[in-house]
């Protein structure tokens, strides 16, 4: 089950859509290009002048806290809501605000995947395949096996757990052999093994040229598999860049520290300029610093006969960066 989502990169990859390969052999157009997307509900701008570009084979994280506008942006890309302004280009097909997008070659899901509970998983996929024009590109059984549902294919979806429905949602997306995959919180409801399988699947699809947009409100879930990130806050893009740029700008890590002699540890920290010990909200020691400085400090503690009982990562640099970006007003942020 744990490797259920693993596979060869070629297994589920599709050829780019006809419009994605320029005839002159020049650079391939973006798999996704959204420009100036605006969507308001009542007086609230859920998405406010958002630009988003995704190259073929790129895995981009669309990050932001709940209510940042990620799902509304995805719904706009899928045509579920009509943007008030902006243009969307999916696999070379351009739509302006008000058009319904043509979703050939585009797959994924928004929020939690939903299915007809009175049908089996197999019947659900057969029905969805008809919405794609008939027979599925990869056989349904193969896709169900791929996501670890081969043994439950003939069970009604009403009896599925959240994680199983999530897997079925991924199966439904793979059924279309997409060139562009838009996934909203794809690891939500999955156990750690399932989340790892999703990550490996995304990597394999990316290697085969499939562009993947992963929406998440937790950078820890998608941080390791994304090539680039777009961070939304209050409907606006507050950061956009590569994973390397994000790491460069990320603040230091924070660890929860417990030792056999906390007083000695605090004194020793004052002698190490690159680390700092603060009091956490729970009264416990919070050690911050770059990874190398933290390593040196731990070695120094040992030399002073101070044993480390716990050194636990509280917030990774990416997480810290995420919170910094999304908890401050966008105008105060430094662009990448």
């Amino acid at each position: 089950m744990t490797d259920a989502l693993r596979g060869t990169p070629s297994a589920l990859a599709s050829t780019p859509s006809p419009g994605s390969a320029p005839p002159d052999g020049g650079p391939a157009p973006a798999a996704l290009r959204a420009t100036g997307i605006v969507k308001a509900f009542g007086g609230t701008r859920a998405v406010d002048d958002v630009d988003l570009t995704l190259a073929p084979g790129e895995v981009r994280g669309l990050l932001g806290p709940n209510g940042a506008g990620k799902t509304t942006l995805l719904r706009s890309l899928f045509g579920l809501v009509t943007p008030d302004a902006g243009t969307i280009e999916l696999l070379g097909r351009r739509q302006v605000a008000g058009d319904r997008p043509v979703l050939e070659g585009v797959a994924g899901f928004v929020e939690d995947p939903r299915f007809y509970p009175y049908l089996t998983a197999r019947a659900n996929l057969e029905v969805l395949a008809l919405f794609d024009g008939g027979a599925a590109a990869p056989p349904i059984d193969a896709v169900l096996h791929r996501v670890g549902l081969g043994g439950r294919a003939d069970d009604r979806v009403s009896g599925y757990s959240t994680g199983m429905r999530q897997r079925l949602g991924i199966a439904a997306a793979l059924l279309r052999a997409p060139s562009l995959l838009l996934l909203d919180e794809p690891t939500s409801g999955l156990d750690p093994a399932g989340a790892r399988d999703v990550a490996e699947l995304v990597r394999s699809l990316s290697a085969a040229g499939v562009a993947v947009l992963l929406s998440s409100h937790q950078i820890g879930e998608v941080g390791s598999i994304c090539d680039a990130f777009t961070v939304l806050s209050r409907g606006r893009v507050v950061w956009d860049g590569t994973a390397a740029q994000l790491r460069d700008q990320a603040p230091v890590s924070a660890f929860e520290l417990a030792t056999t002699d906390d007083g000695a540890a605090r004194r020793l920290a004052t002698e190490h300029p690159h680390v700092e010990i603060l009091d956490g909200p729970d009264g416990r020691m919070r050690l911050t610093g770059a990874q190398a400085a933290v390593d040196a400090f731990v070695v120094a503690l040992g030399r002073e006969d101070v044993a480390v009982r716990r050194l636990e990562l509280v917030m990774s640099p990416l997480e810290a960066m995420f919170f910094t970006l999304t908890e401050q007003p966008p105008l105060e942020l430094e662009p990448p």
Partner: peptide, 25 residues
Amino acid sequence: ATAQVTRGDATPGRRRARPGPRIRD
């Protein structure tokens, strides 16, 4: 399963050459 998937994926061009889903589907 992988073999099946690969076989199914070996003809994406054929799939795309077909018109999109018809109302009848």
